[in-house]
Design a protein around this nucleic acid. Structure first.
Lengths: 164, 164
DNA sequence: CCGTGTTAGTTGTAGCGACAACTTTTTCGG
DNA sequence: CCGAAAAAGTTGTCGCTACAACTAACACGG
């Protein structure tokens, strides 16, 4: 097994990507933690629910769309439920399944924290890039995800939470 | 403060990036954990040392270059020292400072685990992209890092660990 | 050369995620 | 239908990271 090492350009891209991987989650987490007492993953879960019909999703669906394991999601949802931001109830159709539904308080939390979060995303990522680079980034991450997550379970969200 | 929401294209790029942020670290960690009993961060630390003169770096330098806090690095180095992969010694010039030096066993560990790690990086990232996209990724991550880490402390490593 | 502030690093604690073990319900081949 | 296998969640435990508090050593203005 001869190793194909990385050339200079590949290495440069990779090292930078690793550093982004190391720093960006912390930036997202600390802003949301400070301003909304939420981790980024908490926010992601709440935001996903807020955009679903009936503000409700099956645990398995939520897990697939957030890229988390069911075990992790179960812990997170337990904590969010204890805080009154969502509630769980057994699915009538399939008694193995559990649904998670966003409460009014949870919806309010998402709406309150969205502006600050979007501002952070703009400040550290989107506004640092040209429109062309944003488009390139979409294609690049798409290509990576096709290797990382061949089932292609990733979600669409992060839309507006304004008066509408 | 009127919020500037993300448009469709920005949103698409961002959601995909978040998913990469969520999935990629786990993939890197589990491969290295399985094959070398190292986290990706452990590997990064050892690799960085292996490329330094005397295989030695100051804790502060190592922290800056890996993007970690000194506290985190201190814990990690403590564990790696306990496993005999590196050793710490007080800096003669400045007795506040601590140097970390890779042991022979540590160097061997890096050399042994590098091929499998690079293969993983290729499989999930580099080989999923065209050469042009690799170049774009470098520029994009550079732009993001300029916002994330204005001091620009990121390192250069991940070179070859072959017979040389 | 003294005291104040800064720099370097360590340590304790609490919280989150990974992994494995487990229960319950559903599916489906024979 | 019956039993085995699969699917959906939950829970317990362990390891890692963030945060805050702390010690020790250096810098430097007065």
């Amino acid at each position: 097994m001869d190793t194909r090492w990385l050339d200079r350009e590949q290495l440069a891209a990779w090292v930078r990507l690793v550093t982004v991987l190391e720093l960006l989650p912390g930036v997202l987490d600390s802003q949301l933690r400070r301003d909304a007492q939420l981790t980024h993953f908490d926010y992601y879960v709440l935001a996903m629910l807020s955009e679903s019909p009936e503000r409700t999703l099956r645990m398995t669906t939520l897990a697939r769309q957030t890229g988390a394991t069911l075990a992790r999601l179960s812990h997170v949802v337990q904590r969010l439920e204890a805080r009154g931001l969502l509630e769980r109830f057994s699915c009538p159709d399939d008694r193995r399944a559990t649904n998670a539904r966003l409460t009014d308080a949870g919806l309010q939390k998402v709406r309150d924290s969205a502006p600050g979060h979007v501002a952070t995303v703009r400040q550290h990522v989107i506004d640092a890039l040209t429109p062309q680079q944003v488009s390139q980034l979409k294609d690049i991450t798409d290509a990576i995800l096709s290797r990382l997550d061949p089932e292609g379970a990733r979600a669409a969200l992060y839309t507006r939470y304004d008066a509408g």
